[in-house]
Amino acid sequence: MVDDIESDDNWNDDFLAELIADVEENRNIIECISCGKCVGECPASKISNFNIRKIIQKILRGDKSVLKEDDIWYCFLCEKCKRVCPREGINIPLLIINLRNESFKKGYGPRYNDLTKYVEMAERFLTSGVVVEEQLGNKLPQEMIDELNEICNFARIKYVFKASKTNKNKRKKRK
């Protein structure tokens, strides 16, 4: 007799319903037949515990532990899983982006200050419109950089940018 086996009583579709409310396409994961082709072809599964088959099973059971665990942050978003999946319409990369959003919202995601490279890239994007120092050719006109800033209002990229400014000020004060 196995004591810790999950009983059907623990299953609920609340988590899935939340994900569908955010991205309708997530409804298609019900069609998953757990064949594991996605895992076999997945680069992230080769180097980490990322296992999309298990993640989908957890979501379908209503188990939100996937939001706390590191695994979802290892996805390469390479879209191979989408190509090899025998079912139609299962969009795993979009599901992962959705899960990461939920994880951020609950405060589990990586802290902004840990995203050092992104701080630099966010800063360049919001001050020059590009993510690498300078492009071949001219810089984006200022009014268009203002437009990009307006588009990104209230986005996490703005908070990352603010974090970079706060860090710089702190460093200046220390000096």
């Binding site: 978003l77 994007f125 006109p141």
Partner: peptide, 15 residues
């Protein structure tokens, strides 16, 4: 000249 970065990297990182 008026084109910005595609911003895919920020979308993929949920920013």
């Amino acid at each position: 000249e008026n084109q910005s970065c595609c911003s895919g990297t920020f979308f993929q990182r949920n920013l």
